[in-house]
Design a protein around this nucleic acid. Structure first.
Lengths: 209, 209
DNA sequence: CCTATCTTGTGAATCAATTCACAAGCCCTC
DNA sequence: GAGGGCTTGTGAATTGATTCACAAGATAGG
């Protein structure tokens, strides 16, 4: 639907707007202006309108936006109207935290598989799933049809796991490994790098006024 | 040290460069060019040189950069030459994962306190620390001198906790709560929003060619 | 129906980030 | 110590993102 490439910063803000719209909806508001959305998110009304304008025109001049309608539009734009089938690879601390995270399931990200390489974990039942060997990923995926693989293994194993994920035909990856993964262009990769986030904070704290 | 405000994207890349430099150092390389650093990180050599130029000139023309020297410079720039005293607030799934995360400690982020509001957890010993009530944060901090509070509590409690953190005189916050926190300007806040990251991936997957 | 008051949607202008391109410096060889 | 081959550091040019500013629609009230 979008005519030109959408900037990453725009997508991040859309996600924020959706969060605020849900708040407003829960608070019983039926209508919201770009100014109100902007105030809630610490941005400007022009920014909000520009962001939305990439996808269409959803408001009424003089009036603002219908909360319920805009919420639904945002969900559609962000691809949240469908369920996503997720496999979590690496059932260590981070993997376990994610497997149990309710917000995950609630938003339509359904965990359909847990994988690990540790023989002590393989075969065990954890978080309502039977843990399987990473080596069975490709075979499993013939019927599991996983959309997104969450990579939560140590840095040293991450690239090998990523290769297996790609080989299994999974085209979405969310990685928590603190390094740069290499995947083919047709695979979409999003990395959350905790080390980088800490260092960003360290930099900011070290360079105040 | 930096003369003008440094862009967030620049700091993120500095953090990446540091990671690559450590790799190169482990591999025994003594010298590296901006072109090699760029190739490793999927950017351009001009970008690398421009990023570094905000902080000084660290290379030798015709030769490149000394790996060991540049590594140390990057550490200094990012504020990683000192230890940071960290308190983890909310010892649930995410908080526990972080408390046990070795990369955390290794990079000089020392966990000096665990806090929770659950009476079943308060007083217990977890991960080599005695869990304390969030309400004792301000009092504790008179001697604990925490630099960074990691907020890993449910969204509904996050703003209240943030207020307590600020009241305790802690000026660095890393939040994992999926909402926008409001803090005074003198407090540095960095938010990792998992919901946003998932939605970013969802958007990317939904809008492929 | 006309006027006053809002608020959107969007080109134009500004501000910021990235890329280009090249002079300047360094090493090595002869 | 002069020349060739590299690679840095940085102004200038370009590309991209944000902000400005205003015409166009919409509502409400008289």
């Amino acid at each position: 639907m979008p005519l030109k490439r959408i900037a990453d910063s725009t997508v991040r803000r859309l996600s924020l707007y959706l969060r605020f719209l849900e708040e407003f909806e829960n608070a019983g508001l039926t209508t919201v202006s770009s100014e109100e959305l902007a105030a809630r998110g610490g941005t400007t009304s022009a920014q909000v309108r520009k962001d939305l304008s990439f996808f269409g025109s959803f408001g009424k001049r003089g009036l603002g936006y219908q909360v319920a309608e805009l919420t639904q539009r945002m969900r559609r734009i962000l691809g949240l109207e469908r369920d996503w089938r997720v496999a979590i690879i690496g059932v260590g601390k981070i993997g376990s935290a994610l497997a149990q995270y309710e917000g995950f399931q609630q938003r339509g990200f359904r965990v359909v598989g847990l994988y690990d390489s540790d023989p002590a974990k393989i075969g065990r039942n954890m978080y309502d799933q039977s843990v399987r060997s990473i080596d069975s990923l490709a075979e499993d995926n013939r019927e599991r049809r996983v959309d997104i693989a969450v990579i939560a293994v140590p840095a040293s194993a991450a690239q090998r796991v990523a290769d297996q994920v790609v080989a299994a035909g999974i085209t979405g990856i969310m990685s928590f490994a603190p390094l740069q993964l290499h995947v083919p262009a047709e695979v979409t990769l999003n990395t959350v790098n905790m080390a980088m986030e800490l260092e960003r904070l360290s930099f900011a704290l070290s360079n105040r006024e």
